[in-house]
Amino acid sequence: MNVAAAHPGFLSPTGVEIVFVLVGVATLAAAVVSVTTKQLVHAALWLVVALGGVAVEYLLLTAEFIAWVQVLIYVGSVVVLVLFGLMLTKAPIGRSPDADSGNRIAALAVAVAAAGTLVWVVVDAFRSTWIDVDGAPQGSTKVTGEILFRHWVLPFEALSVLLLAALVGAIVLSRKQSRQQPGER
């Protein structure tokens, strides 16, 4: 058995790695469809698939709590919010030919260049690095709760204030200003 086929190696993937790659391909395909489809509502629905795939990847990386937070916050509320936004701005149901702006080619060039550079650097830097996912789970709810409320309490509370400010800001922004401009909605 040569080095490449020895246990931690590319030629002898474990079951977790195979599942990770398969879910990763599905996630990436859903993300690509989400940014290229001409139907705006379908883009939001494909985003659900992509974000759900990322949640499954978190589970495979043993970060269980983050996975459920991902499902709750992203799939549960952010996508619903995006769908509300699409409906409220009267997005066309069906194909809209002007979903992409005129600089598609430049965007594609930038994205391909970024992908090539990042993948090259990452593979070059971490080609002989393995994650040990067989030990104790790194992100179970118990572990996450302990670190969050023992070491990260102050940022946590600051974030709750930030969320409150964002909530008030969104309400103030989207309130109809009927007193200032009587004719306008």
Partner: peptide, 15 residues
């Protein structure tokens, strides 16, 4: 698990 798998997936998703 090889660290390159999540890192490459993250790079591609970012792109």
């Amino acid at each position: 698990m090889h660290l390159a798998y999540p890192a490459v997936l993250a790079a591609l998703l970012f792109s």
